[in-house]
Amino acid sequence: MIELNDVTVSYPVPTGRQVVLTDINLAMESGQTCALIGPSGCGKSTLLKLLAGIINEYQGTVMIDGHSVAPIRQRIGFIPQNYGLLPWRTVQENILLAARIKQGKQNLDMAAFRKLVDELGLAGLEKRFPGELSGGQQQRVALARAFLLQPDLLLMDEPFSALDAMTREDMQQVFLSVWREHTVSAVLVTHQVEEAVYLGRKIIIMSPFPGTIRKIIDNPLFGLENRERHPDFFEFCVFLRQMIQKDWAK
């Protein structure tokens, strides 16, 4: 269970404090996915960093499974926009990095590593460096690293936005299938309505200046296969988009 109560985040500027996020209240059950959608500047990346324990200055409470967020205690898989791979480590070292830091070199589950490498189609690339991979492959490495960690919470900041359209759809499917196998709580930030509807069991709509949550929607069409042939899918996307446009126009 992930719970945020009355969270406000601000940072100091020369004229006082700039509020980035305010009045954030959110509850998310374990093992769910949740898509954050909003225009740029609405603080969705900030919200993600808050959950990742990267931002430590805030008001209110952020709880993961009953404990306030602390990266040292919880297992948090965080995939930043640029995937956060270390250029100087091979694919294998990058995938093992999170688990290694969390549980030590001796306790690495190499069987799980092999399984993930195969699931994500990374076999044969283990000795390469991230700079030698395509964007889609880097994304797969980042996913493998996050899932190998068996996180309490998986956070992704616009994970598929840098990929071309075809690769993006592939990766969304790959993500869902791996997610179904490992069922972890996942929060992803997106600016794409279709992605939110496909990947978010819950959809959270945010608005900017200062960033706040506008609406939380239970998504009936989550994980719908063959979505391109479903009229419901498009209707729902159009409905959401209109709602969002109306809201952001205010």
């Binding site: 990267i54 990266p71 999170a98 690293r145």
Partner: peptide, 14 residues
């Protein structure tokens, strides 16, 4: 070093 490079380690409590 871009800030993002640190994030994946910070979020692990490294």
């Amino acid at each position: 070093i871009p800030q993002e490079t640190y994030y994946s380690l910070y979020s692990l409590g490294a």
